[in-house]
Design a protein around this nucleic acid. Sequence first.
RNA 1: GGGUGAUUAGCUCAGUGGUAGAGCGCUUCGUUCACAUCGAAGAUGUCGGGGGUUCAAAUCCCUCAUCACCCACCA
Length: 975
Amino acid sequence: MTMDKTFDASTAEARIYETWENAGAFKAGANASRPETFSIMIPPPNVTGSLHMGHAFNNTLQDILIRWKRMQGYDTLWQPGTDHAGIATQMVTEREMAANQEPSRREMGREAFVQRVWQQKVKSRGTIIGQLKRLGASCDWSREAFTMGGAAGDPDAGKGAPNFHDAVIKVFVDMYHKGLIYRGKRLVNWDPHFETAISDLEVENLEVAGHMWHFKYPLAGGATYTYVEKDEDGTVVLEEERDYISIATTRPETMLGDGAVAVHPSDERYAPIIGKLCEIPVGPKEQRRLIPIIVDEYPDPDFGSGAVKITGAHDFNDYGVAKRGGIPLYRLLDTRAQMRDDGAPYAEAAAIAMAVAKGERALTGAEADTVNLVPDHLRGLDRFEARKKVVAEITADGLAVMTNSDDPRLGPKPKLKKGEEAPPVTQVPLVEAKAIMQPFGDRSKVVIEPMLTDQWFVDADKIVGPALDAVKDGTVKIAPESGEKTYYHWLENIEPWCISRQLWWGHQIPVWFDAEGNEYCAPTEEDAQALAGAGVALTRDPDVLDTWFSSGLWPIGTLGWPEETDELKKYFPTSVLVTGQDILFFWVARMMMMQLAVVDEIPFHDVYLHGLVRDAKGKKMSKSLGNVVDPLEIIDEYGTDALRFTNAAMASLGGVLKLDMQRIAGYRNFGTKLWNATRFAEMNGVFEGRVPSSDVPMATATVNKWIIGETARVRAEVDGALAAYRFDDAAAALYRFVWGKVCDWYVEFSKPLLDEKAPERAETQAVMGWVIDQCLILLHPIMPFITEELWSVTGDRDKMLIHADWPTYGDDLIDANADVEMNWTVALIESIRSARAQMHVPAGLYLPLVVRDMDGAARAAWDNNETLIKRLARIEDLTVVDAFPKGCATVPAQGATFGLPLEGTIDIAEEMARLEKTLGKLAKEIGGLKGRLNNPKFVESAPDEVVEEARANLAAREGEEAKLKDALERLAELG
RNA sequence: GGGUGAUUAGCUCAGUGGUAGAGCGCUUCGUUCACAUCGAAGAUGUCGGGGGUUCAAAUCCCUCAUCACCCACCA
């Protein structure tokens, strides 16, 4: 057997993964040798397409933890699955249908469409699972779940996966009957593209360029008042008679639904007209509506004119004011955000509204939906079209607030060319160009409208308490800790959670209505019928549940709840949730609330929130920017292990992760390095006729003792790092050990010892075999493929590496003497190499070495490691001298001064410069150390070990300084 | 407007009280039988600015600046 020069990831990975799978290596409880369990629920990817780098990152970290614990003998479960992702999946499917010129959703009808989405689900699920396998994810695939598993149309229903649908429905019914879920007409965020309500979290507020218009609302009956404006000192700056109240708005089309104008109670400017009526300056002239001027705490007197139009049905703030003031709510838009085109003609609606405004009658509940105050000529228009028309009409009517054309609020004046005269100042409508925050649907990217509709809500306030307490009292820990603050902030200000969506893809709400609108909530139609009584005609609520309602039940749902399965007893609560910090509220908080509300237990003990993957420039990866990196492309080029190692190394707590291809290549090289170290061992007979054992081999040679101690160190580092979710520290420690210790030094040191004639050959072979085994074991969670491959070629094993025993040895393997001696040896070799390079000694040339003032320890260290030093520093022999010969380059060491005789070739000036440079550095260090030690306060207050360390350091530095000064003097004499 | 975090070598980032590190890049040298996806040697920092606490500050406190993200209803 001879190994290739490099690892061929492209062929080996698939083969190895298949071997693991066929052996059942990932199954829950596989390799368990102890009772403790360790379980992770995968954050289920959406069945909308394929996985991106963020998923690759997220799943690598989970796999590292699972593999690590599995090797430690824990009873592990990594639960896989996917999320139906209601709105996103419906969108993707519809887009694909349009591209394929299939019939539209509405043409197909609900049942057929849902079937069509199931096809999309099957396709996407296959892609995703394939990607996870390429990534090496060691999930228990036999347990794969789906957040809509068992729902109508599921082609896999009854094939053994948990019936997630039944569990979700049961939770809804239970929560409904406990009064935690209710239906109500409220203002919700409405997505006009998907024609559904969405939750607050699905809205992203973006700053866009907008306009603020200023309009006059004339007082009823031509009434007037004296408008007085004062500055901060109370000086009157403006006093005029007005027959209107000025209002600012960014959405003029909503004026049609105004129910009042509000001012702050302390605003003296408007005190004379409180309680009076004013006219909405739009609509057919003879039928313009009057609305009252009211007071409310909401308007800010310092903003705009201080007066706010109240459109309760189309603005969240106004809704609050309207509720407080009993102002009627008039809906203006239909589900597609076009001006309503239903109900009686405007004249009739306006008459009703007028009567309401005058207090002659109240608006009935039903009328809120039927009264359509959109003037006939605007009906059916798009909201933005209507806006233009409204603005134009008001302006034409002379009711826009006018201003000079050089008003600074209108933006910078155009630059005048030489000789050009400034245009005359004229009166123009005041329209301020303004950056405004506008809500967009995070999926549809269209402007969201607040809309008054009937929706289902979870009374989050009632279930939030335990979720807060569990984190506050430390039952659940969030890493990094800053996540806890964010978590508190959101949960402490939680709003009712709108859980109904006007979609077709999802869990249909288990509520039926009779003709009077009475609700019957039950798991099945039969049960609902039983509640309603026989013969009562029922229709089911067409809405479906927010996808997060079901994914909020992921931990218990995947384990078979409500049945008390063995897995539920064993693996719940789960050990840790590994997820991106972006879904802390969407998912983590919801799981906390839901699990605690349903089974009265926390869903997981730890939450590890990682950063978000960005491109090399730090930009968010998005399809529209075209900077999305497909993890499979990276895997094809560099191999899975390189990608995984990069992911681990990037995973420091918090922040943004920038993906850098050069770094991935570097870690691919790291794998090659490991491969070649193993290849070296193989070529030196390390694995021939070997019986692999986890026992630490006997070692007599210093080098062997030393590397065993270093192995013990890195094992402790890796365990400590992984226990703290410091994947980056674990990766860095392994990198330093494998490359910096094993490859750079141990392999080199071992060469003479592995000589056919060397007495240490057998021992060194045994130690090297063991060290490589340890490297493979410790690296396996991060780099599973290359390590498993090397495991199989380096011995005849009882178990695959994936099930190998994780080591537990400790500091007792560290031999202090070997440590000191090897450090001395390494330092000497480095110093000699450095001197040689700087003196331009040809790399291949062997030089003699002289030494003087050598103490006993240095003598012993030399004698023990002479062969190694000579070989690695290119030295032919050592002569002890009393004084260095002419033309010698000085190499100081602990307990000795070495010299490289270079007479004839040495450049005295260069050597002096070299020594002086080193002396300069030493002097700086010595100065600092002396400064500290001469300060009595330092000696007094610093801990003893710090003082001791400083003293020892000073002594060593001074010793070296003396040697170099001495050498420098001699050189000067010669020069 | 509120909150959180960041600012360290050319680049990407570690480093929570003891005098600054890694990888990449860069410079010079190298075909010794594990590896050129390599080896050896080297250069590079007022740790964002200012102030404070301390024997000692990249690290703790205050402040300013810039950036990023999250949350939020300024018409």
